[in-house]
Design a protein around this nucleic acid. Structure first.
Lengths: 207, 207, 207, 207
DNA sequence: AATGAATGAGGATTCATTCAT
DNA sequence: TATGAATGAATCCTCATTCAT
């Protein structure tokens, strides 16, 4: 159907177990194969139904990613706010933000990967206007914490905070591409290792 | 090692200027929109010809990325080898590898983005078996340098080198997603900032 | 693809013989079976090609009707203007408009049927906003001629011109549903019969 | 003659109020959007139930139109028969048929539109074989009345009765497309205006 | 009477690719 | 080198219909 005046947009009531199952299946596939490379039939096959049947639950393939991403981003935003609110000082704010970010690998592995890989592509569409917005919010949160630490003399004065944020963010989020739940490092172990390097560097102290 | 196979996989005569132009156009689009989201007609449109005409120059869309990636990876591999060979000590090996990696942002921005974004997807196909291979080579190069540094007492003993490498690699390569040639930081400035943080950490020395 | 920001809208250069052939085939089917009931594959089958191949020539099924209707309406508008301009007096303006309208049965049988049957449905879509506009233009043309005749004392004073126009228009255009090129009446014969009835009524003069 | 078969084709118990409501809703939608463009879900939405629930009342979408059309046609046939039976003379038979036809705009607006717009499409299916049959019956009724009038010297001898009938029928039925219950003309006023034009023409008597 | 989940067939459209000219 | 017409397979999505509950 054309780019017309469609009617009933209905979200197809969002509280259903079947929905959640299907969404989890879709998220997994989107994360693994990519959004474009995942066909609606891939999802349906994985769910054991016909592709058309998916449309009983969702309006479109897009609305599936939409829902997956919104849920993750909402959770992450809430977590960030809490961390910043409860942090005793700037340094523990940053270290805790890092711990929480790595921790999200366990709760939202698929959503993180999708957010990482597909944001640029999805942001083309009006419907996903919130993606860059949320990204900016995240950036603000981190930069404020870094700035507070710099003011307090905890962090080096010669840091360009925007660059610093990007370095951290890229390391933290990109971990989703290699993090292996069955691997030898837990997200917390990874977080601690990264915190050490980030705070004190890789160079030996005696040096 | 792929280095032995070299890049003689090309099917049509590879030494044409038109080819190079077309490849540059394609690379730009693949990097910006993604490989799957870029249609052959997009490329042809951007080149001012019809989509069918592209097949006079290339066998397929895949062979275009293939060529783009091979060229980039070959260059990068050569650069890595030279850096390691010429480095005076482990610390300067690592810092120089970082400088060269950020420096590649100027020479191969599109290819880096494609390598980052599409590797997982392309690696499905036999034709791109070299992608994980090269990635492993890169990892080996870095880890060896890090290990040498650790042995020499320059780098901390408590570093997990595999994790450390991943942190560095993710930061360095992912920069392609936000690096702006018109922006206020040159790749070299970015490299120096990162080297500082990586070596000494973000925490103020007085602390 | 989503309701997004599409690019190259290109009309797919409109001057081609193949296009015209395909358009004629489509018009015939749209007229006979209805726009919705005609599948793109019906058209392709009738043209002896595959359905996807139609998209080499046209953007969509809609753009096909669009073109069919525009061509017809343009022609009809020009004809109306000429008739009105050249008419010696209001009565001959009306009779000649009627003759031309029935005459169009020969030149645009399919387009007339489509215009009749699908206007309401198509007018839903922005792209066809011109349909009601042209319909209004036609109405204006006829009503002006009727009005002039009424002023000149040629037509009854008790005529509601809007109603009169509608009676005429419905009779004339709807004829496309039963007019048979192989039938015993030529469009001109039908026109004359209708002109007689319209001007003088069906009641016997002696009465 | 269909009249003998009557309308006992219904499959589910036909005497429910809910049925009648649903049928009215469906008729309205079929008339407004067209039979094909109206989805079963459109109907269900308008009725405030789910689409599957409609099948508790009706066998299929087709059986809905079927019932709508049969009811209307039966009523119209009875009306026609009565008019002809009770008419004092051929002229009043014709004028009264016209009055009744316009009068039907009030009782069956949706059904008339559906009959007008969808007959050709529906007649493809065996189930709707009665549509052309009834149309022929109607034509016979009118032509007989016209013929009687011509024999009696009331109507012009030079009328081609088949053409005349079509002119009248098209005007009368097509009125459903523009008739507005809230508009300034009642069906009766429209009928009288048309009768005047049909009987005496639009040309001023003095002329 | 109605729900909610699913079917299965079909429909418009996209797109990499081919090939005669 | 390029065009223009076409292929054929796949993609997303629609929709009438079924059926267990």
């Amino acid at each position: 159907m054309v780019s017309s005046k469609r009617l009933s947009a209905r979200t197809r009531e969002s509280g259903s177990e079947r929905r959640a199952e299907l969404l989890a299946i879709a998220a997994e596939l989107f994360a693994t194969r990519g959004f474009l490379a995942t066909t609606v039939r891939d999802i349906a096959d994985a769910a054991g139904i016909l592709s058309g049947s998916l449309y009983h639950h969702f309006d479109s393939k897009e609305s599936m990613v939409d829902e997956i991403l919104r849920e993750f981003l909402d959770d992450q935003r809430r977590t960030n706010e809490r961390v910043v609110r409860e942090a005793a000082d700037p340094r523990s704010a940053i270290t805790e933000l890092i711990r929480q970010a790595f921790g999200a690998l366990l709760r939202h592995p698929a959503a993180i990967a999708i957010f990482q890989n597909e944001s640029k592509h999805l942001a083309q569409f009006d419907r996903f206007d919130y993606l860059p917005t949320v990204a900016d919010e995240f950036e603000d949160t981190w930069i404020e914490a870094l700035h507070a630490g710099q003011q307090a003399g905890v962090f080096r004065e010669d840091l360009d905070l925007k660059l610093t944020y990007r370095f951290i963010r890229d390391t933290v989020w990109t971990a989703v591409h290699w993090y292996d739940p069955q691997g030898k490092h837990s997200p917390q172990a990874i977080a601690e290792q990264y915190i050490t390097i980030l705070c004190n560097g890789i160079v030996s102290p005696e040096e």
